[in-house]
Design a protein around this nucleic acid. Sequence first.
DNA 1: CTGCATCCTCTTGGATACTG
DNA 2: CAGTATCCAAGAGGATGCAG
Lengths: 121, 121
Amino acid sequence: MDVPDQVSEALTTCRLRDVLDRVGDKWSVLIMALLGDGPRRYSDLRRSIDGISQRMLTLTLRSLERDGLVIRTVTPTTPPRVDYELTPVGHTLSKEVSSLIRWSERHREYIGMSRRSYDAR
Amino acid sequence: MDVPDQVSEALTTCRLRDVLDRVGDKWSVLIMALLGDGPRRYSDLRRSIDGISQRMLTLTLRSLERDGLVIRTVTPTTPPRVDYELTPVGHTLSKEVSSLIRWSERHREYIGMSRRSYDAR
DNA sequence: CTGCATCCTCTTGGATACTG
DNA sequence: CAGTATCCAAGAGGATGCAG
């Protein structure tokens, strides 16, 4: 059994739904991975994540902060500077996410082939 | 460094986007976890996953099949019987997903508290 | 620089009805 | 039983403009 009974039951009753939504979020995964290397500034994150809008970056960071995964530090200089870093719990999630990303890297080729062969039918 | 340079670069150029979308998908995660325990019938999955619509179950399974993560087996009896099971690669992803679900279990409490305390402000 | 507010579009996904 | 097809509502998310 890969999944314990307790978890299976949790799946069916959707108690995990809200947490999995966090993990499954498009941008959260990328942000968690990047912050795994250390603190980053807002503008730094924005440049590092290709295709993210300012709105989504802010919303995602707020949501990560709300979940206790990220800490937001404001330095009131002019112009202001804001740094984001993982909390200890955030780091443990970042580890999981990194593992998932490595899986993606390892199997990207396979998935691409599967898709092409499926679509060929 | 939790994330290798290669992956960081992949993140910024979004080459991983399509694979992460798969992983991040709401229903895919649950289905992968359930199938980790062994093959399941369509109706079985439907009953096991609370809140999923017939439409989404079918769409998600098709998409998993397309990615080479799930195998669909039709037994042409009356009524027809369709079984779904993980491919070898699907099993490796299921392991990752199970790990993520266990993380969720471990930190559900913490996240709940963080949210309540954040919202209290 | 770091954001918030608004508008507006497009996708996601639920409900329902119908088929082999 | 295991889908497919259609319709439709809700929400995600981009673009833009403004503010501290």
